[in-house]
Amino acid sequence: MNLSLFLFLIGILGFILNRKNLLLLIISIEIMLLAVTLLIIISSFNFDDNIGQTFAIYIITIAGAESVIGLSILVAYYRLRGSISLRT
């Protein structure tokens, strides 16, 4: 559980400290989602519950779809601005 908390804190710090780069923001969000998924899987194994493992698979699927949508928005933003930096 400490690893999950550590990964979540890394994701929050990455999100707060890298507010200028869209790609790093997307990566930070993915790290936070995977930390929550890891916590759900660990809790599922501790309580001997298969529903938590199924829920973790759903979270991983939604995280993959979110990253695809985020990267497509990133490509469209790059085509408009010529850079992925959020500086104006």
Rank of each mutant, 00 (worst) to 15 (best):
T88P: 04
N18V: 10
S43H: 09
L34F: 15
F45V: 11
I29N: 12
E30Y: 11
G70Y: 06
L86H: 03
D48M: 01
I26K: 01
G14M: 12
K20S: 07
I41T: 14
L5R: 06
V75W: 00
A56C: 06
F8V: 09
S85P: 02
A76I: 04
I69P: 03
E30D: 08
I62L: 14
G11Y: 11
I12C: 14
L33I: 14
F55P: 00
G82M: 03
S44T: 01
F55T: 09
I60G: 04
L33K: 05
A35I: 10
T54N: 09
I51R: 08
L17E: 11
S72W: 08
L5Q: 06
Q53K: 12
L3M: 14
T37K: 04
N50R: 04
S83V: 03
L38M: 15
L22D: 01
F6E: 12
N2M: 10
L24W: 06
S85I: 06
E66I: 15
T61E: 05
S43W: 08
S72H: 09
I12E: 05
L25Y: 00
Y58Q: 08
N2W: 08
D49G: 00
L17I: 13
F15A: 14
M1H: 04
I51C: 02
L24G: 07
I69Y: 12
N18E: 06
A76N: 06
F6Q: 10
S4R: 03
N21S: 03
L23A: 10
I69L: 15
R87T: 10
I62R: 06
G82C: 02
L71S: 09
L9A: 11
T88A: 04
N46W: 00
L24V: 07
I16W: 07
I59V: 12
F6V: 14
L25F: 02
L33D: 09
I31E: 00
F8K: 08
I51W: 08
L39K: 15
N18Q: 05
R87D: 14
I10K: 02
G11D: 13
S72P: 01
I41M: 10
L23K: 14
L13M: 15
N46A: 07
S43K: 10
G52N: 04
T61Q: 00
S72K: 11
L71F: 15
D49H: 02
L9M: 12
R87G: 03
F55K: 02
G70V: 09
Y77K: 01
Y78G: 00
A35D: 10
L7A: 13
I16M: 13
R87Q: 13
L3G: 05
I42S: 10
F47W: 07
S28C: 08
N2P: 07
N46E: 12
L71R: 04
R81K: 09
L34I: 11
I69S: 11
M32S: 12
F15Q: 09
I84Q: 10
F45C: 04
F15D: 04
S44N: 02
F45D: 08
L71D: 04
